Simulated scan of single mutants.
Amino acid sequence: MAEPPEETHVIGGVDTHKDLHVAAVVDHRDRVLGTESFPTTRHGYRLMLAWMRSFGDLRRVGVECSGSYGAGLLRYLQATGVEVLEVTAPDKLDRRRRGKNDDYDAESAAHAAFAERRTVTPRSRDGMVESLRVLRVCRKTAVQARRIALQMIQMTIVCAPDRIREPLRSMTRMQLIRTLAAWRPDLTAYRQVEEAYRIALKSLARRYLELHDEVADLDDMIEAIVKDLAPELLARTAIGLNSAAQLLLTAGDNPDRLKSEASFAALCGVSPVPASSGKTVRHRLNRGGDRAANSALHIIAIGRLRLDPRSQDYVARRIAAGHSKLGAIRCLKRYIAREVFGIIMRRHSEINQCQIAT
């Protein structure tokens, strides 16, 4: 009797860089078939996919750094229908034993994708949540630059000559900024100390106002996106715009990659972690997960302790049962994560249904 044909499916792995991606392919027995480098262009992505498929039926690809250097490759592979897994850092023991180069890293990513270890389903980066992320990053840097400009204004005023400093002492922040921005120093007299101070203060004040307007414009855009994505989230007690935006970013454009609300809680770092020993049975705070999401949940929990009678009663019962206040707040954050995940998933289903209908 003839033997059945040997399977020919293969698994890919990619070590991503700014200008070149290094790809590796392993067969159905996890044996390395080859490695190759490709440019980080759309044509390079096309060549890489064709090269991987030349070895057999491509089942999935493990990609390192799919949120940064590998973002373009992730979008391309998802658009072509290839299953993509995000590969975390290589095994330290294996790296210490074998050494490190780009080929080894690509092979390690392929081995990890083959065994489906050290892998997670990556967030897709082609929806409104990705737009929200980019705008929030831009806003964050604008706020930081605005703060630096204000600090520079205050430091410059402290060192300024008395005739400049004295009239500015009693002004509020915005009075000060608008007064400085309206100054008309003599630009040809920049060699004189007083005029140099006036020129510098006017420049810093105008910079502050420009950044202030930029932050306001970005806030309007961010608010519009959050209201489109999850209006019910903003309607809940103590959930503000920034907290809602961060939780949407943590869930991503494809929250269905999270198997349950427990996985979302673990992703936010609010799942209980066993810390029992002997006759002592307890749980401790989770110090892992997305710390920005954890911070957002903590802000919501503190707000509800002030505004929501049900949350106040719940924490009081936990403390009466022997929990510390911090432990009781941890439990409250866990319940808030469950509530938030339900809202996000319902809204995600509604958006998908609308897209299918259109």
Rank of each mutant, 00 (worst) to 15 (best):
V87C: 13
Q151N: 14
L150M: 13
L209S: 05
H111S: 10
R95E: 15
E195C: 03
A115W: 11
I199L: 10
Q144A: 15
M152F: 05
D126V: 07
G127Y: 07
A109D: 06
Q144V: 13
Q154H: 14
L85T: 06
A115I: 03
R117N: 12
L135V: 06
R173A: 01
P167M: 08
R147M: 15
R146D: 10
R136H: 06
R173N: 07
R165A: 10
D94W: 13
A110M: 09
D162T: 12
I177Q: 02
M171I: 01
K92I: 07
D102R: 03
A189W: 04
L180M: 06
L209E: 07
I148W: 00
R125Q: 09
R123N: 11
Y197K: 06
A205Y: 03
A115S: 10
T121C: 08
R178I: 00
P185I: 02
E116I: 11
M152C: 09
R207T: 13
A189S: 11
V120G: 00
R97Q: 13
K100G: 09
R206Q: 11
R117C: 10
V193D: 10
L211T: 02
L204Y: 04
R184M: 10
L168V: 03
M128C: 09
M174H: 06
M128I: 00
V215C: 15
L209P: 03
K92W: 06
T121K: 12
A200H: 05
R146I: 05
M174E: 09
H111F: 13
R206F: 01
V134H: 04
I148P: 00
A145F: 02
Q192N: 06
G127I: 07
T156Q: 06
K140F: 11
A115K: 13
A216E: 15
P185Q: 01
T188N: 07
A196P: 00
H111Q: 11
I153L: 14
M152I: 01
V215Q: 07
T172P: 02
A106H: 04
S170A: 10
P161C: 05
I177E: 03
R178W: 01
A142W: 08
